[in-house]
Design a protein around this nucleic acid. Structure first.
Length: 242
DNA sequence: CACCAGGTAGATC
DNA sequence: GATCTACATGGT
């Protein structure tokens, strides 16, 4: 959930600039889609979801959320995030409704690892606590991370215990604007195997194929196929031959 | 009661 | 490198 704070006397330019970045409107989407519209599967996915963009989400929230996502299901991920926000997030009041912001790194660091276990994070508790603490203490600098090119950003993220290749790529694609990143989860693996490889393949093979095949806008290509497979169905794509 | 869920770390061959 | 397994928790 995104909340944009703004007051009447604040320059509207700043809000517009923020939204343009958040919605990824600064990127030339038609050019990107044209570049990855290279086969019937992509063509059909693009036609169906024309206009879909990959949001540039807030880095810290994205990073923390994807640490929690590993080997976990979506409803429970949402539940845990809700719990963390309610317990450690700043209260936000809008007219007569109350909600809570995603907790700051400092708030989670202060909470302590034992308290995070209480929030049912399981073995992910120390992962999240360590990252929170390093960011809160200024040991790990998110602003510096934003300036890094894709390979370096990914490598820096993967230094943390609890951030592997998939989570690092999620952070790179969904919050750092690196559209060449490819998070390979079970779905992406299944999609590439069934549509293109026509056989099972290792993570390394999947990545190699996808990089060679889709090129620099790999992340966008992935997003269209992924969204199609998860909302319409992968079987549906398999039967599109033109 | 097994098996799974938007993976990862650590050990081993 | 490629492969195997434990890992917390809650749902089917």
């Amino acid at each position: 959930m995104l909340i944009v704070e703004s007051s009447a006397d604040e320059e509207p330019d700043r809000l517009e600039a923020f939204l343009r970045h958040y919605l990824d409107l600064n990127r030339d989407l038609p050019a990107i889609l044209d570049a990855v519209d290279i086969d019937p599967f992509m063509h059909h996915s693009i036609e169906t979801f024309w206009g879909m963009r990959i949001l540039n989400q807030e880095v810290w929230e994205c990073l923390a959320s994807f640490i929690l996502s590993q080997n976990n299901n979506v409803p429970r991920i949402k539940g845990i995030i809700r719990t963390l926000a309610t317990r450690f997030g700043e209260e936000i009041t809008l007219e007569d409704s109350v909600d809570y912001a995603f907790p700051t790194p400092q708030a989670l660091a202060d909470a302590g690892v034992e308290t995070l276990y209480d929030c049912r994070l399981g073995y992910r508790a120390p992962y999240l606590w360590t990252v929170s603490s390093e960011i809160a203490a200024g040991v790990f600098d998110l602003e510096a991370l934003k300036r890094l090119p894709y390979p370096e950003a990914k490598r820096e993220l993967m230094r943390f215990k609890g951030i592997g290749e998939k989570v690092a790529d999620c952070i790179c694609l969904f919050s750092l604007g690196h559209v060449q990143a490819l998070p390979i989860d079970v779905w992406v693996k299944r999609i590439i195997e069934q549509l293109y490889l026509k056989r099972q393949g290792s993570i390394r093979e999947i990545r190699q194929f996808a990089e060679d095949y889709f090129g620099e806008y790999l992340g966008y290509a992935q997003q269209y196929l992924f969204h199609y497979a998860r909302t319409v169905g992968l079987e549906d794509l398999l039967t599109t031959e033109s």
